[in-house]
Simulated scan of single mutants.
Amino acid sequence: MTPELTWLTLTAILAASLWIPYIVGVNRHAVEGQDAFLRPHDLTAYPAWVHRAHRAHLNLVEQALPFAIVVLIAHQAGVSTTLTIWAAGLFFWLRIAHAVGMISGAAGFPARPLLFTAGWIAILVIAVEVLRA
């Protein structure tokens, strides 16, 4: 398995697990009159961190698909360079930092948008390497 696929696998595990803080928050802070199975919840009725946990999950899902596509195309095309390996690893760690910063509230403006943008750039770096091959 290439390093890029390893980073993709770790990113998939993160995406598959990032719903947990949101669900913990929704269940820990039950709101009177709010059906536990009603989706989507009225997030304004919950503490701010619960809303941020929901957004952190959605933000990762928004970037995980393009990341997965370019990594899988790179793998299929036999493209694995120092640049793609570093970009894939950086993407994963940026997404960890984004999730932790967003849920905790520590990464406000401009940190959070910069982390998201850096992840986008990492995706573009891999895509450019694929297109150059």
Score class of each variant (00 low, 15 high):
14 L>F: 02
126 I>L: 07
47 P>I: 11
96 I>N: 01
46 Y>K: 07
115 L>F: 14
117 T>E: 10
89 G>T: 05
55 R>W: 14
20 I>C: 06
101 G>M: 05
22 Y>P: 00
57 H>C: 08
41 H>D: 05
104 S>G: 14
75 H>P: 01
49 W>Y: 12
58 L>K: 00
8 L>P: 00
117 T>V: 15
22 Y>L: 03
14 L>D: 07
75 H>Y: 13
2 T>A: 09
124 L>C: 05
67 F>K: 04
100 V>I: 14
119 G>M: 11
6 T>R: 04
19 W>P: 03
41 H>F: 14
45 A>P: 05
43 L>Y: 15
133 A>E: 04
62 E>T: 06
55 R>H: 15
45 A>Y: 04
67 F>H: 03
24 V>T: 11
125 V>M: 08
65 L>K: 01
117 T>A: 15
37 F>L: 13
72 L>K: 05
66 P>H: 05
87 A>F: 08
33 G>D: 08
88 A>W: 01
119 G>T: 13
80 S>Y: 07
73 I>T: 09
12 A>I: 14
89 G>A: 11
17 S>T: 12
54 H>F: 14
72 L>P: 01
47 P>N: 01
126 I>C: 04
45 A>I: 02
44 T>L: 10
87 A>I: 10
8 L>Q: 00
5 L>R: 04
119 G>K: 13
32 E>C: 05
44 T>F: 06
84 T>H: 04
75 H>D: 12
49 W>S: 06
110 P>D: 01
43 L>M: 12
93 W>C: 08
62 E>R: 06
125 V>H: 10
47 P>Y: 08
81 T>G: 10
2 T>W: 14
19 W>G: 09
33 G>A: 09
84 T>N: 03
